[in-house]
């Protein structure tokens, strides 16, 4: 009885822990979320809370009018600069997305000379690309240069030369 229970327990625990390896798709795991925008959001909320609190403290008499006006103006300026940063970030990522799409398109069309072509196009894009997006593009480009492999015809993700299937979408590679 005990032996049986122990075997069942062990098997169940093992199966449960190993299950994610056999699952086809949809890992719940860590999403890489956008840290910068999250941080901005959090800072925005903190500043808003402060503004609210200032108003309330003023209303209930903890702050004098003079202090309140002064602090309010200060935190409003701060909030506005956060809003601006957020907008800049958004513009940046839009531009970036455009670049990404272009790269993917180029990769899909290209076969043998794809590498060079992409390289050229990317170089051009980089010149045009907005400042904020620059770093990301730079990074992507340096990765592209390192691998020099082939690209998936389906989704445009790069693959190593000896890969047989796409690591991203699973399509068969030529």
């Amino acid at each position: 009885m005990t032996v049986f229970a122990v075997i069942v327990l062990t098997a169940a625990a093992f199966a449960f822990i190993a299950y994610p390896f056999f699952k086809q798709r949809g890992y719940s795991a860590v999403s890489t979320g956008d840290q910068k925008s999250r941080e901005l959001l959090s800072r925005r909320d903190t500043t808003y809370s402060m503004l609210k609190e200032l108003e309330f403290d003023y209303q209930s008499g903890i702050l004098t009018e003079e202090d309140y006006r002064d602090l309010e103006a200060r935190y409003k300026r701060k909030a506005i600069s956060i809003l601006k940063d957020a907008d800049d970030l958004e513009k940046g990522s839009e531009a970036e997305e455009g670049i990404e799409a272009e790269i993917r398109r180029l990769r899909r069309t290209g076969t043998k000379q794809a590498g060079d072509e992409v390289e050229q196009a990317v170089a051009k894009l980089r010149r045009v690309g907005k400042n904020q997006a620059g770093d990301q593009v730079e990074e992507a480009v340096s990765k592209l240069r390192q691998t020099r492999g082939k690209f998936c015809p389906q989704c445009g993700t790069a693959a190593k030369a000896d890969d047989r299937f796409c690591a991203s979408c699973g399509a068969k590679l030529r």
């Binding site: 909320d45 809370s49 609210k52 300026r77 506005i80 600069s81 809003l83």
Partner: peptide
Amino acid sequence: VKTEAEEDDEKYRLRLEQELKQFGERG
């Protein structure tokens, strides 16, 4: 604290007021 682009600021100021109103009374 930067104070460039005055007319831009005005737009943001309005937005801030509106958002603050929506923000309610969360702590």
